[in-house]
Write a protein that binds this DNA or RNA. Structure first.
Lengths: 132, 132
DNA sequence: TTAGCTGCAAACCCTTTGCGAGGCC
DNA sequence: GGCCTCGCAAAGGGTTTGCAGCTAA
């Protein structure tokens, strides 16, 4: 669609990416906005949202669904997440093996695993059929 | 908190649960609402949302985060999901082993896996410490 | 009887978008 | 100079909630 738009390296975009890369709390857009205002006092929330979308489209950050608010992740290597149902924090879980969920290991590290959700993304058989 | 509220078995709640159990498309609240209106013409969207929340709190259904809209799942046994990035459908993936992600198997079944997300839920070490 | 539940509609809140001005390449 | 991006503010869209009447137990 728009993969060949010439992106500018604006200060706003750099600041937002820096903020995201300097934290592991998987912040919301609003948290990033407050942080960004410490560097660019008159930055707008709309700009934060627009740049988060751009950064996501370029594969530089990830967007996590967390209820109705989105959270963003500056770490894009493959890793799992652990969401605390008590404080709603989201923790990074390093992958021990390629594709293996290790509940026991988490337990030893102090986590109490109540459940987990696995969501694959890709193209379904129906769409695969339609596409060729 | 409110685990001892005496729930009534209203027709609205029954209809909503029945609808959810009779489909595997992981519908949105609005879809359920439209279906429910075929049985209870003057049911309100607010009632649908309230009952979905109650059913979820009682562990009878699951809520899935799918962007800004929630989707609901009447199937509560452990299973994976596959979300098509082309048509946005969500498919149920039966678990082949206890906790093993089987990309190869999905490929053989016609799915093209582009990625997957694993989200654990539970209590984090920090909160575990605070709670005792 | 009575406390949970409903329909209605307004309120909420996060996110998106239109606009004219501004600035990176 | 071109056009991508900005700040501002209003609009959008899914979800929640206050209220008064209703109803299951």
């Amino acid at each position: 669609m728009e993969g060949n738009i010439k992106r500018r390296n604006t200060q706003q975009r750099k600041v937002i990416l820096d903020i995201l890369r300097s934290t592991d709390i998987h912040p919301t857009a609003d948290w990033i906005y407050e942080r960004a205002r410490q560097v660019i006092p008159n930055i707008s929330l709309g700009t934060v949202y627009r740049n988060l979308k751009i950064l996501k489209d370029e594969g530089l950050i990830l967007e996590l669904n967390d209820g109705k608010q989105s959270r963003f992740d500056g770490r894009i290597d493959e890793h799992f997440h652990f969401k605390c149902t008590s404080c709603n924090s989201i923790y990074d879980i390093d992958r021990q093996e390629i594709v293996q969920i290790d509940k026991e290991r988490l337990g030893k590290e102090g986590y109490t695993v109540q459940g987990y959700e696995v969501v694959f993304t890709g193209i379904c058989p129906k769409c695969n059929g339609n596409q060729n």
